[in-house]
């Protein structure tokens, strides 16, 4: 995908430009394997009060603030997922197999490196619960309660047998096919969980049961509009397109406003010195940059540099400049102010 700002060619699914950080005006597209067309359309959070259309999942109308009830999809269109009874497993404390960090007993993933722990860290106890598991064919009555894991009777638990052994993690993501490391808990590309039943035992991310937002009847709602992703308040640091200075040590770029003279030095408010380009953030103080070190004259495609009698001198392509004498400056020229190195780029 080509960046509309700097023209850099980015990967097709890039959200931000690699070169300049510009948000790429790309709708959120489903991954190739995402969902089939017959899946329900998420109910747009259409406000019943003002008619404003909100992103599905939004809790309050962005226009009038009214609560948006029922951000769930058409309930009738989706068959309830089959459920199966599985014994509750009680994890034991262990060290992460990847980085060796000590893990808490309940941890499913290493807090330090993110590697999966759950598969290796569980032992059976006698407390069964119901959990959703799409790999089983044995349906259980769908539990409409908000509590996803009701405790079953001991009799029910006896028919469950031993817990399934955790399968070994795949080398490629079953969801998107991307290559994954054996110890990864989630695919780096699409985020899919890579540890099946073990991951399913992790319920800590599920929210507490609540009836704070009762779902309302969901009929006649228009399909959701894609979110206006360009409206976010992203703070970008675009690469200057005009003449600029490059700081090779940090990769930072400093735009040179023109036409006219651009004073480069080190800001010192207490002597009332405010150069156009302040090299303090780029090691100016330690590098011996003077408050008024040098200036660059920006003209019509022509540039010149002049040392301003700085204490530690200005060097152009490793040649010391005579103080007060302007010298032509060209694209790619190396400038050194004291110990601070810069590269001049004409555009």
């Amino acid at each position: 995908m080509k960046c509309p700002k700097c023209g850099n060619e980015n990967q097709s699914d890039a959200v931000f430009c690699d070169q300049c950080g510009q948000r790429l005006a790309q709708p959120v597209t489903p991954l190739p394997e995402a969902v089939s067309a017959d899946q329900p359309t998420a109910q747009a959070g259409t406000c019943t009060r003002c008619g404003g259309v909100n992103t599905p999942g939004e809790l309050f109308c962005g226009e009038c603030g009214a609560p948006l009830e029922g951000p769930a999809p058409e309930a009738a269109a989706v068959a309830a997922a089959p459920a199966v009874m599985q014994p509750v497993v009680e994890p034991v404390a262990l060290a992460c197999p990847r980085c060796g960090a000590q893990a808490e007993p309940d941890d499913a993933f290493c807090a330090k490196c993110g590697a999966a722990l759950a598969a290796a860290s569980t032992t059976e106890t006698g407390q069964p619960t119901a959990t959703v598991n799409e790999q089983t064919a044995e349906p259980a009555p769908a539990e409409p309660s908000v509590a996803p894991a009701p405790v079953l009777s001991p009799e029910a638990s006896q028919s469950l047998g031993e817990p399934e052994a955790a399968p070994s993690a795949p080398s490629e993501c079953p969801s998107c096919g991307a290559h994954v490391a054996p110890e990864d808990a989630f695919c780096d590309f699409c985020g899919a969980a890579l540890v099946g039943p073990a991951a399913a035992t992790v319920t800590s991310s599920a929210p507490a049961a609540s009836s704070a937002t009762p779902a309302k009847a969901e009929t006649g709602m228009p399909p959701a509009q894609p979110a206006d992703l360009t409206a976010t308040a992203a703070i970008t640091a675009p690469t200057p397109v005009g003449p600029h200075l490059l700081v090779p040590d940090s990769g930072a770029t400093i735009a040179l406003s023109g036409p006219g003279e651009v004073l480069v030095g080190r800001e010192d408010p207490f002597s009332n010195t405010f150069p156009d380009v302040d090299l303090t953030p780029h090691g100016g103080e330690a590098g011996g940059v003077s408050r008024r070190h040098f200036k660059i004259t920006v003209g019509e495609g022509q540039f010149a540099i002049q040392d301003l009698n700085s204490t530690n001198a200005t060097w152009l392509n490793r040649t010391r400049l005579q103080p007060g004498l302007p010298v032509a400056l060209h694209d790619g020229d190396e400038i050194r102010a004291g110990k601070v190195k810069l590269v001049f780029r004409a555009g």
Partner: peptide, 25 residues
């Protein structure tokens, strides 16, 4: 700090998707 995973389950069960964390609400 250590990396903290933010994980969601995509489900087809309408009852599950209507549960919210009251503090976050």
């Amino acid at each position: 700090s250590g990396r903290s995973d933010i994980v969601v389950d995509y489900v087809t069960d309408p009852a599950l998707v209507r549960t919210y964390d009251p503090t976050l609400m």
